[in-house]
Design a protein around this nucleic acid. Sequence first.
DNA 1: ATTAGCACTCAAAGAGATAGAGTGCTAACA
DNA 2: TGTTAGCACTCTATCTCTTTGAGTGCTAAT
Lengths: 354, 354
Amino acid sequence: MDMNERKRKILHSIIDEYIKSAEPIGSRHIAKNLDFGLSSATIRNEMADLEEMGYLEQPHTSAGRIPSDKGYRLYVDSLMNDYELTVSDLSDFGGVLEWKMGQIDKIIKRASVLLSELTHYTAVLTTPEMRRGAIKTVELVPVDSASALIILVTNEGVMKHKRVLLPAGVDGEFVHSFSNLLREKLSGSTLEEISAAKISEIRRAMQAHFELLFPVLDFIAEIIDDVRAETEIFTSGATNILNYPEFNDVHRAKEFLEFLDNKEAVAEILQPATGQEAGFSDGGITVRIGKENKQDIMQKSSVITANYYVGDQVMGRLGIIGPTRMDYPKTIAKIKQISAMLNRLLYDLYIEEE
Amino acid sequence: MDMNERKRKILHSIIDEYIKSAEPIGSRHIAKNLDFGLSSATIRNEMADLEEMGYLEQPHTSAGRIPSDKGYRLYVDSLMNDYELTVSDLSDFGGVLEWKMGQIDKIIKRASVLLSELTHYTAVLTTPEMRRGAIKTVELVPVDSASALIILVTNEGVMKHKRVLLPAGVDGEFVHSFSNLLREKLSGSTLEEISAAKISEIRRAMQAHFELLFPVLDFIAEIIDDVRAETEIFTSGATNILNYPEFNDVHRAKEFLEFLDNKEAVAEILQPATGQEAGFSDGGITVRIGKENKQDIMQKSSVITANYYVGDQVMGRLGIIGPTRMDYPKTIAKIKQISAMLNRLLYDLYIEEE
DNA sequence: ATTAGCACTCAAAGAGATAGAGTGCTAACA
DNA sequence: TGTTAGCACTCTATCTCTTTGAGTGCTAAT
């Protein structure tokens, strides 16, 4: 059995129609509504072939056909037309302009809301990975006689802070000079570079004056570890998915929503595809269709993910989750758009102003 | 028709049973399983009376009875027995001990997760209101040549920070002395007190040296406004609710989940009851049953809320949302417990150490 | 190669029929 | 006078049976 142009066109139409209706597509429907100039019987024969080749499936004998995962895969890889965002689509992105001077978390959050509202699927984003961030400054700010704030600023603009108790007998001036020592030792290092050795070095440098603050140093080591490990995940539009008939039973809906609460699992689906994988795409866009996903719950869903960058360094990923019957061209176009906007925004925020 | 002790006991039993089973309760069930020493016929008569009095309802003629909102109200106000937390219940609270040195948001978040896990309903908490917080310190920390961080610390330990661009020609020393001016002027004031007048005063004091930093001052005014307005809301265990047959259709589930996304609406249900209201209770615990709730979507749900304090000042509220058929005694006991734990924790964090 | 025609299949929707849980009422009882 | 046994009645949930209609696969004619 070989794949000719007519078969491709018919498959394309079937998938387009099924994406719209979520109902199995029959030969008569195709023959009538699309003008192939062929009778339903001919279409029927072609459909039987396509099924044999694995691109279509039949829920039961007397139903129409629905695309298989393999069908969707072919569709995504070589059938579908790129979707051009319309003026009206683009105007929906308007809100982005207001983001300008915010913090990075806010931007990411806003982007996830926008993405879910634009696509009507569920959006998932990671906050930037900070392993490779460089420390811009470390500050120890006295709050009152007994406590101070440790503040950590990286070049990615993300800040971490923590309140610590100070040992008795430590005054503001003392804290201030320790703060200077810290800044001097740590500024410019990336988080990856700050090893136990480096901390020990600071400890030695402290020997002379700052024995009292040893506990504070431990705290600092701790929050650096925290930041290093931390990648937050935002999801948005979880309830969107409940609009699709695919999720029209409470059990399935519940499983899905609980899955979204499981940050590790969500982080996993955001992983980019490797070269081995079917979903691999060098544009940074990964599409995983149905059973191409590892997770049980995702077997009937598709996930489209993309990178976002600052300059040429990958900072994090964003994506959407929807039923396998997903409007791939449109969704991919929108993800690309959001990703591009994020790139530009973050670039302005962290590179240009340096 | 008057309410005698026997009627009260029967009503009590019916509600207890209905809370367990979610199935209408028939006279035979009560006569058989609870030992009133009465026949089903007698129970039947009493039930007819209770229905006439408005405490029970019948879904249809040949079904058993279910409690009405009025029935639940009587139950909560004067029928139900206080639930004593068991040792095993209490051991579930164990995780709290780990909270000790965290930030306030973390604590609140943790508390909401714990509350939802313990009750199996949906938990809702507000972060502390900061209107009345006093500013402990304001700091302007230079990050690089072009930008600085504004950091605001209140006595409630909550910190707000924002990165601002600095005008050209401003050096670290300059920023530092401005920072000192700010601290001097603002420390000790509560957020409520910081009016436009106060800001103008600072502006005047700046006249001499700091014209360059006027834009930064505006930013500071802005973030103070932000903090003043800001009460965040955490929800947790939203999917718990899907386990209850009351929410066993996708449409209803969806409405509920969307409701939870609407922060203003959720803030509203957390409002304490006024003296006028049925749900009023001076212990700080408010119970709103079914139609006692203003919100459409809550007409078939109950909400139990409580205050949490630091010292004797109300800081925020916590609560749970569940079906009207809710295990009131147990849930109330658990909310009280969590609230007490929060109080203690926050007290340790903000009062003792001062 | 395409198509008209027809027999066949199967899920979904509708129509009874049945079972069972529960009620209300009446009459008998202590 | 309060309680109970008994019975007719009601109503839902469930099961089975039938009907409907969409869609297929195959065959024979074009």
